[in-house]
Amino acid sequence: MTAGQGDGVGGDGHVRVDVPALVHTRTHHPEAIAEAAACRVRRPRLSASGQLMIVAADHPARGALGVGDRGLAMASRADLLERLCLALSRPGVDGVLATADILDDLLLLGALDHKVVMGSMNRGGLQGASFELDDRFTGHRPEDIQHRRFDAGKLLLRIDYDDPGSLATLESAARAIDDMAARRLPVFVEPFICERTPEGRLRSDLSAAAVTRSLAIASGLGGSSAYTWLKVPVTENPDDMARVMEASTLPAVLLGGDIGDDPEGQAMAFEKWRDALRLPTVRGLVVGRSLLYPADGDVTAAVDFAVELVDTAVEVL
Score class of each variant (00 low, 15 high):
residue 313 A to E: 14
residue 107 L to M: 08
residue 81 L to E: 03
residue 293 Y to Q: 10
residue 63 G to M: 06
residue 300 T to R: 12
residue 58 D to P: 07
residue 170 L to A: 10
residue 144 D to F: 02
residue 79 D to E: 10
residue 149 R to Q: 03
residue 237 N to F: 06
residue 68 G to P: 10
residue 84 L to V: 00
residue 299 V to Q: 06
residue 93 V to F: 04
residue 48 A to W: 03
residue 261 D to M: 14
residue 72 L to T: 08
residue 110 G to F: 14
residue 279 L to G: 08
residue 278 R to Q: 09
residue 16 R to T: 12
residue 223 G to S: 15
residue 173 A to L: 11
residue 151 D to R: 01
residue 146 Q to P: 03
residue 46 L to R: 00
residue 28 H to Y: 15
residue 12 D to G: 01
residue 59 H to W: 15
residue 157 L to T: 02
residue 290 S to C: 03
residue 162 D to G: 09
residue 30 P to F: 00
residue 37 A to G: 03
residue 80 L to M: 07
residue 84 L to W: 01
residue 219 S to Q: 15
residue 253 V to F: 12
residue 235 T to G: 00
residue 44 P to A: 07
residue 125 G to V: 15
residue 174 A to D: 05
residue 3 A to N: 11
residue 245 M to K: 09
residue 174 A to H: 10
residue 200 G to R: 02
residue 190 E to W: 13
residue 77 R to G: 04
residue 310 V to L: 04
residue 255 L to D: 09
residue 152 A to T: 07
residue 142 P to F: 09
residue 256 G to W: 07
residue 152 A to C: 08
residue 190 E to H: 15
residue 25 T to H: 09
residue 51 Q to W: 02
residue 276 A to P: 03
residue 309 L to W: 03
residue 131 F to K: 08
residue 51 Q to I: 00
residue 85 C to I: 04
residue 183 R to P: 06
residue 230 L to F: 15
residue 42 R to A: 14
residue 148 R to E: 12
residue 131 F to L: 08
residue 158 R to F: 14
residue 121 M to A: 15
residue 270 F to M: 11
residue 236 E to M: 02
residue 207 S to W: 01
residue 261 D to A: 13
residue 283 R to P: 06
residue 105 D to Q: 01
residue 3 A to V: 06
residue 198 P to L: 02
residue 306 A to Y: 05
residue 220 G to Q: 06
